[in-house]
């Protein structure tokens, strides 16, 4: 399959195409859609406030409380996003990781897509063509959530739908199994790569474990929010040391 690619497709200069101006324009368009939506929603809420038994002052307080509560988590997402910039370029990171999805789902989608091209994310075979296919797969996967929302919300709104009466045990076990199954599979797949990959997975997992234990012991919930960013940084730092000390195969 890789032989079908043109010489350009085999270039590994991802950022040359990932940061194209058109992509910036489209990314900013998505931000625009969110801003427009928020403005319309806030106006609608102010108008209907009295009918919902909520005062203008309370609406303002809610807005401010939500904004303040989002500062920490937002900056945590910023840190993770910056770590992913070299992989996907700024526009793709802004839309996929910053908005619509999350670092977990989007990097998982990208890794799966790269796998179907016989490549590993960020590896020597992570070419422009692999990036574009991965970006496409991430976007289509994100579209799955948005389409499901667009289709299911009106159905759920109509009330007493069968959807809400789905067996609670089924709703508890199947999503958990699907999630853990997907990420366990991706995590274990890393063990088939180089020793540095294995070290990265283990160090990142151990760091997150430590963050969660400390978060609980010191009831510091910020550690839970920042856990992923911290784990990525520690994982990368150890990977850098291991890689440069010659543990990686010469590739």
């Amino acid at each position: 399959m890789k032989t079908a690619l043109t010489p350009e497709g085999a270039s590994t200069d991802i950022l040359a195409i990932a940061n194209m101006p058109v992509l910036w324009v489209l990314a900013i368009g998505v931000f625009g859609a969110i801003i427009v939506q928020s403005l319309i929603y806030m106006k609608a809420a102010q108008k209907a406030g009295p009918a919902a038994d909520i005062s203008a002052a309370e609406l303002k307080t809610s807005f401010r409380a939500g904004a303040v509560a989002a500062i920490g988590p937002s900056l945590a997402v910023v840190l993770v996003s910056i770590a992913l910039l070299t992989l996907f370029g700024t526009p793709a990171v802004l839309v996929r990781i910053g908005l619509v999805g999350s670092a977990a789902t989007e990097s998982a989608s990208a890794s799966l897509a790269a796998g179907t091209m016989g490549a590993a994310l960020g590896g020597p075979d992570y070419t422009q063509a692999v990036f574009v296919v991965a970006f496409m797969a991430m976007s289509l996967s994100g579209a799955g959530w948005m389409l499901a929302t667009l289709i299911l919300t009106p159905i759920l709104t109509k009330g007493d739908s069968k959807l809400r009466k789905v067996n609670p045990a089924l709703m508890m076990i199947v999503p958990a199994a699907a999630l853990i199954g997907a990420f366990a599979s991706l995590g274990i797949a890393e063990f088939g790569k180089t020793p540095v990959h294995i070290i990265s997975v283990l160090v990142s997992a151990a760091t997150m474990f430590l963050c969660l234990v400390l978060a609980k012991a010191m009831s510091a919930s910020w550690l839970r929010e920042w856990g992923l960013g911290i784990s990525i940084l520690v994982g990368l730092a150890v990977a850098y040391i291991a890689h440069t000390s010659g543990m990686a195969p010469a590739a």
Partner: peptide, 17 residues
């Protein structure tokens, strides 16, 4: 190097979380 090992560094933490 960061690009090479970013995915394993994410997946370990995500899995534990």
């Amino acid at each position: 190097v960061a690009r090479l090992y970013i995915f394993p560094s994410i997946i370990g933490a995500v899995l534990v979380q």
